[in-house]
Simulated scan of single mutants.
Amino acid sequence: MNTIIRTDGLTKHYGRVHALDGLDLSVDEGQVHGFLGPNGAGKSTTIRILLGLARKTGGSATVFGQDPWHDAVQIHRRVAYVPGDVSVWPNLSGGEAIDFLARLRGARTKDTAYRTERERLTTAFQFDPRKKGRAYSKGNRQKVALIAAFAVPADLYILDEPTSGLDPLMEVVFRDEVQRIRRGGATVLLSSHILSEVELLCDRVSIIRAGRIVESGTLQELRHLTRTEVSFEAADASALAGIPGAHDGTLDDGRARFTVDSDDIPSVLPVLAQRSVAGLRIEPPSLEELFLRHYGDDLAALRAAEDAGSTGGGTRASRRAAIKES
């Protein structure tokens, strides 16, 4: 399988700030690859380097085997890009802006095939292309970029928080379009902090923290790194006794619950079968749980700082320092 995007030891420094600090990322052809992390983790900086909009400080980055800084023109002919905060020309209509963006990518906007596809997308996204850009809300500006990207076929789609400003119905339309281009053989790098979106769409996920990839793999592979929750109907806590590898056992509303290392599930099931448990449920770890495995300490530090602030403890600067040190 061809590797479409590859970075090795990629760094980007802004003075003393290390936005990227040895990032290793690999995206194979035909994948929808989730690029997951909170704001400030380095996602957008990585994308700017991949698009040739920023120059790396060190390491290497290639797109289609080419250097994005020196070969940006050739790369952009094969790439569709949607940013998370779209600006449009105030005096152009939405339709004119879409056509202009499409022409920049080589589309013949008078061709019937393009016009048909643009019409299909404007209907699907419930978008009025007749209004001027200055009249559009954030969500409608986002639709301009999405329609322009999906209306013209590309080998690689780089989507940076693409559903920002969209309502839930339009998010469903977006997911349908990503599935369509994947079936057509395109590669997608989807940068997002919306865990449910990544979980529904992506073949592989890379989690970025402080400018480095801390986990990468399929959801199934990553789930082996944490525990699965098991529950069944029970009258009292004694039902949890003697289950091999069980952790965090509790009894709540007539159900016994415990967690077990995902790799140990096959050894636990025969024990439960011997006990003839009823109402058995096995819930693999969600992407949110995998994410919090790396960012849970940040959340705890933030809550502690907020608690200190609400009780008057510490200055704003000291609370920020506590979060940073975590």
Rank of each mutant, 00 (worst) to 15 (best):
N2V: 07
T3W: 09
I5T: 08
H18K: 14
H18G: 07
L20K: 11
D21N: 15
D24H: 04
S26T: 15
D28F: 14
E29T: 06
H33M: 05
F35H: 00
P38Y: 03
N39W: 02
S44H: 01
I47N: 00
I47S: 03
L51S: 05
A54C: 08
V63Q: 01
F64A: 02
G65Y: 04
G65V: 05
A72H: 09
V73P: 12
V79F: 09
V86Q: 01
N91E: 12
L92F: 11
L92K: 09
L101G: 03
K110Y: 13
T116V: 11
R118G: 10
K132Y: 14
K132T: 12
N140F: 10
R141V: 06
V144T: 05
L146M: 09
I147K: 07
A149H: 08
A151F: 00
V152F: 06
P153K: 04
P153V: 05
A154D: 06
D155A: 12
D155W: 04
I158K: 02
I158T: 00
D160L: 04
D160Q: 02
L169D: 10
V178Y: 08
G185F: 12
H193G: 08
I194Q: 15
E197G: 08
E199R: 09
E199K: 09
S206A: 07
S206L: 00
G211W: 04
R212Y: 07
G217D: 00
Q220H: 13
E221N: 02
L225H: 13
T228V: 02
A234M: 12
D236K: 05
A237R: 13
A239Q: 11
L240D: 06
A241Q: 14
G245I: 08
G249L: 10
R255F: 15
A256V: 10
S262L: 12
D264C: 13
P285W: 04
D298W: 13
A301V: 01
L302G: 11
R303C: 14
A304V: 03
A305D: 01
R320Q: 12
A321Q: 13
A321R: 15
